[in-house]
Amino acid sequence: MRTIFFSVIIAFASLGLAEEARKGPPTVAVIDGEPIYKVLEPGAIPAIENPTFVTGETADKQMKPEEPVMGVVIKGEAHAYSLWQLDAHEIVNDEIRGTAFAATW
């Protein structure tokens, strides 16, 4: 699990929001005494809603051997997600044989 969006910082910089970054982002709520900060619009980091998959050699060609993956096995079917790819999406809405799940990073 990664616990930061570096893209947040990049977004602040590219939007010329240096001043806002110094002040800190707006607080939308306080939960258990700690603020929820709003740093980007919903969906600005695009979750994957309709994932497509590859197998075998095609899959091997896309991956470096030591590339880190998150893996699940549900009802005997294995799915893997490159963590480098998940950096840009953070959430994959997936389904295996009737079990709907989200792989999150």
């Binding site: 893996g71 490159s82 480098w84 790819q85």
Partner: peptide, 28 residues
Amino acid sequence: QTTWVAWSKAHPKTKLLAKGEEVTNSHY
């Protein structure tokens, strides 16, 4: 969580989330 080589060897029929773009390293 593991490496692709270890995962694909243990789960040879695994499906891999297709990469739409070239991703060769972590942004982070």
